[in-house]
Amino acid sequence: MTASHQYCTFYLGDQCFGLDVLKVQEIVRYQPLTMVPLAHPMVRGLINLRGQIVTAIDLRVRLALPPRLESDEPVNVVLQTDDGAVSLMVDEIGDVMEVAEEHFERPPETLRGAAWDLIQGAYKLTDRLLVILDPELVVSLPAEQN
């Protein structure tokens, strides 16, 4: 029997992404945002999560993907980090998926481009790839990684 991991999955466009389920605190539907002027573009604003002020990061901006349509309401994936809860705004939420380690593969050398360093690897599912993101790096400003 091989080891398996559980991932919270979500979509940005057609691509399926996964984050370690233990790092995900909760999923919250779209919340009214308070804009933060002068902030990095990936910070969409602040939300009030039951009395806690949480920074909301647009994962599309973080991964340098094209912006989502105005009409689409993003969903908040709230992560637990050392610095408190941080929300990632994604297009659509998927299931919690249990995948076997044997299907995991590290990113190929050819993986380059924006934010490639956030990608830990991918699970080869039957019909698609589940791309696993680094939960710590994904919430940090791009400049902080250096």
Partner: peptide, 24 residues
Amino acid sequence: LQKQLKGISVFSGAAIMGDGRVAL
């Protein structure tokens, strides 16, 4: 503010207002 916003010197923090919205 969380670390993603620490560098912005014009804000010292954020607060939750009476109506539940966040204000800087």
